[in-house]
């Protein structure tokens, strides 16, 4: 690993930004590792979650925003539940994803695409339309046949349906998206 020059390589602004957007104080973390100890996905992470917290304390913006870990996090919130310092770690991971996306630094493109497909579906139907979401994701990501073998199994058991079901008030859900878009525009 390269030497990190702490005199000029701590991005204080980034720390403040995360603090403000997540409402969490990274200084509370004393690096006990309980988040990593409980994390079900840590095997797939390039940086375990306790190290993401440490990188954040050290203001290592580029390393964090380019990491796979923040995208592989499933927001199961085990870290948040276990944190003895009462930091909402999952919220910080979420904030990091938002910042990464805003800055166009998405290290796991497919995951971002999946999120997009999921949200598009919710926006359109007021709830998730599984088949549509999957098709959309597969088309966008180029993994045309991903999980296709599972289709017949779940379809025949009635777990998912061919045609979308709209919920009552789906227009209201769409309004949520609109409101959010407007707000996002206002805040740049």
């Amino acid at each position: 690993m390269d030497t990190i020059n702490l005199s000029n390589k701590i991005d204080w602004e980034f720390i403040e930004q995360v603090k403000e957007e997540s409402g969490q104080n990274p200084s509370l973390c004393y690096q006990c590792g309980n988040c990593t100890a409980g994390c079900p996905y840590t095997n797939y992470f390039d940086y375990p979650v306790s190290m993401v917290m440490r990188l954040l304390q050290a203001g290592q913006k580029d390393t964090i925003l380019n990491s796979k870990a923040i995208w592989l996090c499933a927001t199961c919130e085990t870290c948040t539940t276990r944190c003895p310092c009462e930091i909402d770690v999952a919220h910080i991971m979420d904030t990091l994803r938002i910042i990464a996306r805003r800055e166009g630094k998405v290290s796991e493109k497919d995951i971002k695409l999946f999120y997009d497909s999921f949200l598009d579906s919710v926006k359109q139907f007021g709830r998730i339309y599984e088949v549509g979401t999957l098709l959309m994701y597969n088309l966008r990501s180029g993994h045309f046949l991903a999980d296709a073998d599972l289709g017949p199994k779940v379809l025949t058991r009635g777990k998912i349906h061919f045609f979308p079901t709209k919920i009552k008030g789906s227009d209201k859900v769409a309004q949520i998206f609109e409101r959010f878009q407007k707000k996002a525009k206002r805040h740049g």
Partner: peptide, 10 residues
């Protein structure tokens, strides 16, 4: 099951 933060693993 715990963490070894010095190794950075579970």
């Amino acid at each position: 099951r715990g963490a070894d933060t010095l190794l950075g693993t579970q």
